[in-house]
Design a binder for these strands. Sequence first.
DNA 1: ATCGTGACGGTTGAA
DNA 2: CGTTCAACCGTCACG
Length: 201
Amino acid sequence: MTALAGGIPRMMRPTHHQNYPRGGYSLEVSTPLGQGRVNQLGGVFINGRPLPNHIRHKIVEMAHHGIRPCVISRQLRVSHGCVSKILCRYQETGSIRPGAIGGSKPKQTSTPDVDKKIEEYRRDNPGMFSWEIRDTLLKDGICDRNNVPSVSSISRTMRCKFGGGAGEDEEDDDEIEKRELEENERRAKHSIDGILGDRCK
DNA sequence: ATCGTGACGGTTGAA
DNA sequence: CGTTCAACCGTCACG
């Protein structure tokens, strides 16, 4: 641990390390949704998970009323770093929702160019099969035999871009939010049901 | 006193 | 099915 005599690169924090005296400082509380913890301000949070929606909402609402971030932080018991982040994001994107967690990068098996071409073929001829697209890619000289994507790769690409063919409908934040709230409630209820009378299977 | 920032330990979910 | 791994999370502490 002492290994970096050579000048700590201005941004390393050898001393911090989230070193709590082991055994617990960060109180643990149980919530319907998992292991909750308590931050320095006394607020409850779940490590690794986004803040609940109503808190996020409250943060932007208070900010909207001209309340300073530091006050919001103390009042809602959310770290100022988090308040700052949520507010920043809200200003940038207009959304209070957290970013998409998890999943793999849409794997770029082909170049963007090829991807574009696939989209184009598909748009011009929606009934086209993946193997036909593959053939066309070769015929048009977009790819050669060495770098042409596999048929399954092409169908994956199309699944991603076209979502299975159905038109994508954009829901506005409110709608998503509402649905999320319901889902949360349902989930919470579920786990309570599970505790009260475990009968599923 | 505030607030931007990045390390950290954590969870998630498509591939 | 289980595993991988890069995305995001909020907290903490520094500056």
